[in-house]
Design a protein around this nucleic acid. Sequence first.
DNA 1: AGCACA
Length: 280
Amino acid sequence: MAAYHQPYDPYYVCHPHLLPQLADEPGAINTLFISGLPDDVKAREIHNLFRRRPGFESCQLKYTGRGDQVVAFATFSSHRFAMAAMNELNGVKFDPQTGSSLHIEVARSNSRRKERPGSGPYVVIDNRNKEPSKSQDDQSDEGDSDPDEAHEPGNGNSPKEKDNTKSEVDSDQDSRAPPTSGHLEKASESGSGARPCSTLFIANLGPNCTEDELQQLLSRYPGFSILKIRARGGMPVAFADFEELEQATYVMNDLQGDLLSSSDRGGMHIEYARSKMRKQ
DNA sequence: AGCACA
């Protein structure tokens, strides 16, 4: 079926302002923190990565000054949109050459640094050691340093370092179907297609995955209660129950695509379980 | 793509 609005725009994904815009509770974070970027990443690349994601508002690239480390922030019009983008892009391979993959988390605080007409398309913050000879080389926008954002993100619970390897980033090619094509529906919590549940379903485990291995990993997260593994003849799958939905969601996002030492077929695939684990 | 326990 042809999209009766915008039939000819290959860049068309969907218009954020047409999507159901559930109001964020005050204080909701709508900014993502992106690390795992190659040190030669360009602001343009970050912009291209996010610009067609529903609800995208602005992004900025930041040279932290710690070595060549570069991080980025992307701001969306709502928390949900930010989560959707995070779920789609987290763990994605950003540079096929080096194999570096994106690590995306919710930022510690919202970016106040919106895209401003006067400041050019990309916001770049350069904290690299200012060599006397070399003035600010980038299109940095203003003088005030950045009091707003958080580098080492962490929602109070971020015990790990990752090495994911996942799908290819679709950054620039505009060939993606809109997640929502016009008609209203409860914005899906994305991530899994399933509806949110405080029990997680963990698949793509290797045949040698042990309950112990998963237990070790999961027990580092707040709210984790019970793990169950089923082999059911085929590959093992696991169910992990959490006290709160938010804690399950955090773990799903944090561990998505991660490799276990027993993994032999890629990283874990984590979704919300179809039903909450029965308390017993 | 794979979702159990009651």
